[in-house]
Design a protein around this nucleic acid. Structure first.
Lengths: 129, 129
DNA sequence: CTTGCACAGGTACATTTGTACGTGTACGAT
DNA sequence: ATCGTACACGTACAAATGTACCTGTGCAAG
């Protein structure tokens, strides 16, 4: 796997919508934008085109509309992006970021419970390996 | 607080070294680079200059060398950057990122213990508020 | 004194990114 | 047959970014 150039912020925003909705047209994605962060139809189109040329998406002309599909899994892009960030901002340590997320941005009671379970599970695994 | 333009990746890398070392010269920062991700002396210089022009750093000429200091706290930049990322990649939800960090990138036993404490503390706080 | 380092500061420049306009065309309504 | 609508697709272009060279100058070694 040759490493494709990374995604820019705008491309990422569009990519995320693509992952969520599955195969979609420019319009679908354009309309799916969260209010307040609208980008022009043509802009979305450009991002999609770039996504495709970078190898992150593929498309087929279906009738007269082009339908784009994600070609790279969200997880892959997320991993790469997060790794990047962690390395640049925290010297490769993930804990500081985890701490930041939990402390600085709210975590609901439910999420807290989920986290607890996650941790307990990992502690178990740790013990026996 | 007018929001200054964000930091680019390169600038962030340099900014981080600046935060760690405290006031430093171009050379100090250049030499402090983790092996393998060396950037040219002049490149570091440029980033520092840009950091200053964006208002994230300040500098004084000390004798014949210029000494740069961070002007914005790491936490501020981190918050902004992470918020950005979380919003673009996870639609504003931080839990998916926390999960990713814990599951996909290793967490040592010690860190796990720390996390457990952190969670317990938050659970306590939650109960009484 | 002369030469060479070590830096500061200015300038350069190709890419990438954000953002979008304009043209051409197929299809459905008049 | 004609028009408006909805797209695809090519093109545009300024700003941001990554990356670095070049020039001048003071200091220190010869």
């Amino acid at each position: 796997m040759v490493d494709k150039p990374g995604l820019s912020k705008g491309e990422m925003t569009v990519a995320r919508i693509l992952w969520e909705h599955g195969p979609a047209t420019v319009r679908t994605i354009h309309d799916a934008q969260a209010d307040g962060q609208q980008m022009d139809f043509a802009t979305v189109q450009t991002y999609l085109r770039r996504l495709e040329s970078k190898g992150y998406a593929s498309s087929v002309l279906e009738g007269k509309t082009r339908v784009y599909s994600a070609k790279t899994k969200a997880k892959t892009v997320i991993r790469k992006t997060v790794d990047e960030l962690v390395s640049r901002l925290f010297g490769g340590q993930s804990m500081p970021l985890v701490r930041h997320l939990i402390e600085e941005r709210g975590v609901s009671a439910d999420e807290l419970a989920e986290l607890r379970l996650l941790i307990e599970r990992l502690e178990e695994e740790g013990k026996q390996s």
